[in-house]
Design a protein around this nucleic acid. Structure first.
Lengths: 339, 339
DNA sequence: AGCTGCTGTGCAAACGTTTCCAAATTGTGC
DNA sequence: GCACAATTTGGAAACGTTTGCACAGCAGCT
């Protein structure tokens, strides 16, 4: 219950001076500062965030919008963001907007716009241009991770290039019969990533003069279970089997590996599998992948945002391409000899 | 920028009446309410949470403290909590307190106590009695999920009984050589769950007159990777092999299944595996488990909390035992014939 | 007609900080 | 010592709501 007023009385200073002393802004003599801090400590003073936000306009609170909290990529981004924010003394408000339901709109209106957060990190979520404009209009910077975001800063990986590289890795090993596990179309609307990766795959195949068989481009939902189910169909089908699978996410790749094992296929002798992500489980499965370090992306988003907030000046939207790392493990090798 | 003042002017009403009209509290004539709402809509008025919190003392914001955001159990709880809060118009502030570092203390002091959240949900995190008292002293209810929490309300599953039941399931199938995968000791301090489950295991074994072999009680870190690594050692060791494994979490159980496959062991013919959790991946692996519905636990925590906040009266701490469901799949069966 | 008890409304006082501005103090160079 | 600048300080006005209190209008009683 002790407010700054009590602290001021106890320290024999004015409220204004105590405020300055404790916040570190403005000039305060060393003596006054010490007295204020001592008094605050004595009374166990904790400033009210509400009052301080109201007066200063700063919340020290950043919102993050994610479509899922289960998929590894998203929880990793959240983890990176959380850690960076905690270090900076910020709170993290989590908006887990599941489904493409109307929920998303209401979240934006009811929560994000109420000046409760200083900024927003949108992960793989395409806000509309008007939504972005609304946020920016109330001086709330936005950073998008993973998704394209018109008018806002973004952190992205080179989805096209990566996918082409992954595909080329398989091609260079000698594979010609390559399948692609792509993302669920439910997300397409908000989330161009699966499509871009698919395009990268097709581009690389075309460049190598290889045929993309429609029945080998199959869709799952980015999870292990989904990848497993889809890969079972792919590998179990009566027609010819691909010798390699490029999955748009490590989770689907792992699902594919599990499915292959079910059929008695050896990885990589009978089937090569490559993913994208850098999933913690990748090592266990010997998964060759492209590590995109989502924790680092989250941390970078925080850094960009905080710099922007402190800098004061509204800076133009920046598009950052986050570096990735090709990790070659044991799930990819030359194709089995043709029979 | 439109404040309630502008709305009042446009509606030809006083600020007070507009506030009452929009918040739904107090008596307002239907006519005034309509006018206020229309004016608010016209101006795109969005009330400032800071100001409203400052004046009313309510934040409509609840904090959740979790040790991890990657492990399935925690992300599921978060998901359940998030959904329930969004429905109720509350924000969720996430405190991902990794490690048993000093971080935890600073989070409590710097964030939780600053009256920024109306209440706190602590997941599998034993706050000290004094920390709890501090929170309650500033009228911040606490609900603990999973962990024991002196003086606060808790939602828990019957860890002892469940573990005994899981063990008995194996015993009834005829197993006598049963191993237990328990939790990492790093968490012990904050997190009595692994120990309680171990005790349940030992209790059931003792009741059946079975021997608990120390070398068959092995420790991992609750993850798939950890369970895998530990199970490999367990199963690969030169000495006799157990015919069944009871893992304290589904993730470790899945790790054990993967390790068993590596050794060419068939599940359940050569090795039975049972877990606890109800992990989404359980079905894929045919894992027999005890489903504890963490999403539901999260939702229940929110309900308890909101009732308490609305009820006004500080109610006594309640201990709720959350119901679980025994899910028998294909990972458990009678032991292989003795050789 | 005179009371009582509602409902609906507005005024103004919180809520607990930050920060602008002006005043007071201290320091500096001659 | 003096003029002037730089540093410290305090008073008080925001910040944008909610809510206690008082008062007006009005219906239902006796």
């Amino acid at each position: 219950m002790a407010g700054i007023k009590e602290v001021a009385e106890r320290a024999g200073l004015s409220i204004a001076t105590v405020s300055r002393a404790l916040s570190g802004k403005g000039n305060v003599s060393a003596k006054s500062r010490a007295r204020a801090q001592a008094a605050a400590a004595d009374l166990g003073f904790v400033p009210s965030y509400q009052a301080s936000s109201l007066a200063s306009g700063r919340n020290y609170n950043i919102g993050i919008v994610v479509p899922s909290v289960h998929r590894w990529y998203f929880s990793s981004v959240v983890e990176g963001v959380s850690r960076a924010l905690l270090d900076a003394g910020y709170d993290l408000t989590l908006y887990n907007v599941t489904e493409v339901s109307g929920r998303r709109q209401s979240v934006l209106r009811d929560f994000l716009l109420r000046k409760r957060v200083d900024a927003v990190i949108a992960v793989a979520l395409a806000l509309t241009e008007s939504e972005i404009r609304q946020m920016l209009a109330v001086h709330r910077p936005i950073v998008g991770i993973g998704g394209p975001l018109l008018g806002a800063s973004t952190i992205r990986i080179d989805d096209y290039g990566l996918s082409a590289a992954a595909t080329n890795h398989l091609i260079q090993l000698g594979h010609t019969k390559i399948a692609h596990l792509t993302g669920d179309s439910v997300y397409e609307q908000d989330f161009k990533i699966p499509r871009t990766r698919l395009t990268g795959f097709k581009g690389a195949m075309a460049a190598a003069g290889l045929e993309v068989r429609p029945e080998w481009v199959v869709t799952a939902d980015f999870t292990i279970q989904g990848g497993y189910a889809t890969a079972r169909q792919l590998l179990g089908s009566a027609s010819e089997r691909p010798t390699a699978v490029f999955a748009a996410s490590d989770e689907m790749a792992i699902g594919a590996i599990l499915a292959a094992r079910d059929f008695g296929l050896r990885i990589p002798e009978d089937l090569s599998v490559i993913g994208i992500d850098g999933h913690d489980l990748g090592e266990l499965f010997g998964l060759t992948t492209i590590d995109q370090d989502p924790r680092g992306q989250g941390a970078l988003a925080v850094r960009l945002l905080l710099e922007g907030l402190d800098g004061g000046a509204e800076r133009a939207a920046v598009d950052t391409t986050y570096p990735t790392k090709f990790v070659i493990r044991s799930s990819t090798a030359v194709p089995p000899p043709a029979r």
